[in-house]
Design a protein around this nucleic acid. Structure first.
Lengths: 418, 418
DNA sequence: ACAGTTTCCCGTAAATGC
DNA sequence: TGCATTTACGGGAAACTG
């Protein structure tokens, strides 16, 4: 057999991108009395899907394989299909795929496995199938697809309700907030604390968020845009998750990013602190941005400043910790100064971020090394002041969701289950 | 018919990447007496290539089309094949493609066109084929492929000598330097001047460069590594061309980049100039880098400093003109200063680059905008002093090479010829 | 071990479809 | 026209293959 070939979107199983290879595995749980003949398994995509309402896909490559003894310990039969690839069935006649009722990431598909064998003259047909799958054609659809997988697995135990998104059930805020926190602990290593979740709840639900039994609709989470914005709540949150994964992992895991704080809360927290106290917050106006806000006292007045949020492009030019270390403000020709002194509530900046700074290579060649420094040119100021609040708390713990793995003895994308 | 579908590697015809669509066109130059029946043209890749020594490819998609009257003015017949795609033929038996004699970018392939028609009982077979083609599988092979196309077209007029690189002829430095300059004028808008070419000649050939009849081998240009480096002369030069195309176009076209100057020459040029005089030079040690060197006078002594070369990654974070505008040196805690004052020989920096600076967007939102500033931290200095020299001169003019187009009435990648 | 070559696939941009 | 979805392919990295 061939070697690896890393799976599609590691850690996000149940989502398959057309034209990209994926891997799946079936195991026979019944122990067969006699195993001295070959047991073939055939896998079919969208096997008994009624055409018309949704797109249909098929497996491009070879889809039949012989079962094999899995390992020496348990001796059960299994097959692993590798290098499978999906392609959309195109209809010559008028019938076309997605009919507009559901978005493509709400369409649920499935992978079926069939085997047929004879024991003592008896012909037995075995058939099983995967949990519902989402099929996408571009990674840009991954967030939407993942929202569907989450919602489905959060709200139903049915193994195969492909019509789930025809009329998706609601979730309580308590259920949803746990899944959201779980996203952060799974993909970024650290979940969300009470304050962060309460800001998220308020953003999503307004005052209702205080009631943990409040019902959130699927549409509210990931289909409707946030008022005044061009993206849904989930798109926004997922963009932040991606930003953390790629550019903020150590800072996030040290709990240095408060992240989800409203601007009012931010001011309440900062207003009584030492000048130069700052906190890190995600942008609410743009996808995948992070900013810092610091407090200043100038002639008896409290002032707050925030930089334009840093996005993935900026952060790949300069790591966030280095931005914090080097950030300078030039106020009308005055000597540049770094206004960031204490990470909220009162940790000296270098004490918090010191270990995360990039060590300059300082090679010994004829060249002078140079680095980039983020600078703001300041001219005028503004200020405000609002309500009250508390401080951070420990993150939540993950939940169930393990069903994704072992279920029906079906693995997709090398989720292992020894 | 379908719309555009931009061609592979615009401006670099005769190179085809496997799995990427390309377009080709044949025209019938003979006017046929009667055109009241369909004339089919079939295109075949590597038609009569003897297998074994080189890889062989075939056209994945439909390769037969009917000729059509081209336009109303000339009424001649033509077909345009679009969405063609190449795939390598794989041999089941031992025979494999490339036998190691030639690198893949030295393998020459061809595209054949066949048509058969009957006039007054006479059956006539028409056949023509393209100029030699290079087939690559990844854009990383594009520079090597382009070197082959250049060398072939520079040194032979044969329409189809697929064995050309079995024993490639040499070029005179005079021929080669013209093509090199032509590369810059074609892809970057401005060719190379005498001084730049003489530096290149010396780099490639040593003292022989003074003799324009000196013969340069194919190997020297693009197969052997530059002594002490891990890349060939051509790879180095092409990486610079790419850097210019993507990040330095305006600066290059204003003639502000001297670019090809040896370090000795650089010092000779700068040593008698005003302190703060600088020039722009491409890195010789790394692929695709540009640096600036400036002169300083400190207690009667002349000093030269160069920054670590900026590469495409750095330049996509900050445009080069802005780097020049904002560059600062901090000497042991002293107030930051921009050491770049005059572009060699004596143009005030802002006069030269002013029009190329990025205007800050300065949005009117609650955030403070911030930009990146390149900074060097200086501690100690070094200096030297060498020979003598002259100053810049106008660039060379392009050459022939138009044969690539009209030849044999074959177009690849939408090279037009009305 | 390794270098030349190909494959894989994300992420952006453009094309397509509705 | 605009939005949703797919296709295209450059570019970096991993896999392959003698």
């Amino acid at each position: 057999e061939k070697q690896p070939c890393m799976p599609t979107h590691p850690q996000k199983p149940l989502i398959i991108k057309t034209g990209v290879q994926f891997t799946t595995k079936v195991r026979l749980l019944v122990k067969l009395p006699e195993v001295d003949y070959q047991l073939k398994v055939k896998t079919t995509f969208d096997k008994d899907l009624t055409p018309g309402r949704v797109r249909q896909f098929f497996i491009l490559t070879n889809n039949t394989k012989v079962m094999d003894i899995e390992d020496y310990s348990n001796g059960c039969l299994s097959v692993e299909f590798r290098h499978l690839q999906l392609k959309e069935k195109k209809y010559i006649n008028g019938t076309k795929g997605n009919e507009g009722l559901l978005s493509v990431t709400e369409e649920l598909h499935s992978l079926s496995f069939e085997a047929c064998f004879t024991v003592q003259g008896l012909t037995i047909d075995l058939e099983t199938c995967s949990l519902p799958l989402v099929v996408i054609s571009n990674v840009s659809q991954l967030p939407g697809g993942w929202a569907s997988v989450m919602w489905y697995n959060l709200l139903t135990d049915e193994p195969r309700n492909l019509a789930f998104f025809g009329n998706p059930p609601r979730a309580t805020w308590s259920q949803l907030s746990e899944v959201l926190s779980w996203q952060f602990s799974t993909f970024a290593g650290k979940g969300l604390n009470k304050e962060q979740l309460s800001m998220l709840g308020e953003k999503l639900l307004g005052q209702h968020a205080s009631c943990s039994d409040y019902q959130v609709s699927w549409s509210k989470l990931s289909k409707e845009n946030i008022p005044g914005k061009s993206f849904s709540f989930w798109m926004w949150l997922d963009s932040i998750l991606e930003l953390i994964k790629k550019h903020l992992l150590p800072v996030w895991n040290e709990n240095y990013i408060m992240g989800f704080v409203s601007k009012e809360m931010e001011r309440t927290l900062l207003k009584d602190k030492e000048p130069g106290t700052f906190l890190l917050r995600f942008s609410e106006s743009h996808l995948g941005g992070i900013t810092f806000t610091w407090v200043e006292h100038s002639n008896g007045e409290v002032k707050f400043n925030s930089v334009e949020p840093y996005t993935k492009n900026r952060l790949s030019a300069l790591p966030f910790a280095d931005i914090i270390r080097d950030y300078k403000v030039i106020s009308d020709g005055v000597v540049p100064e770094n206004p960031l002194k204490f990470l909220y509530p009162d940790i000296p900046k270098d004490e918090a971020f010191g270990r995360l700074y990039n060590i300059q290579p300082s090679k010994v060649h004829p060249y002078i090394t140079s680095t980039l420094i983020p600078i703001s040119q300041l001219r005028s100021h503004t200020s405000t002041t609002p309500p009250s609040c508390q401080s951070p708390e420990p993150p939540m713990t993950p939940g169930e969701f393990d069903m994704l793995s072992e279920h029906l003895c079906f693995d997709i994308n090398s989720m292992s289950s020894p």
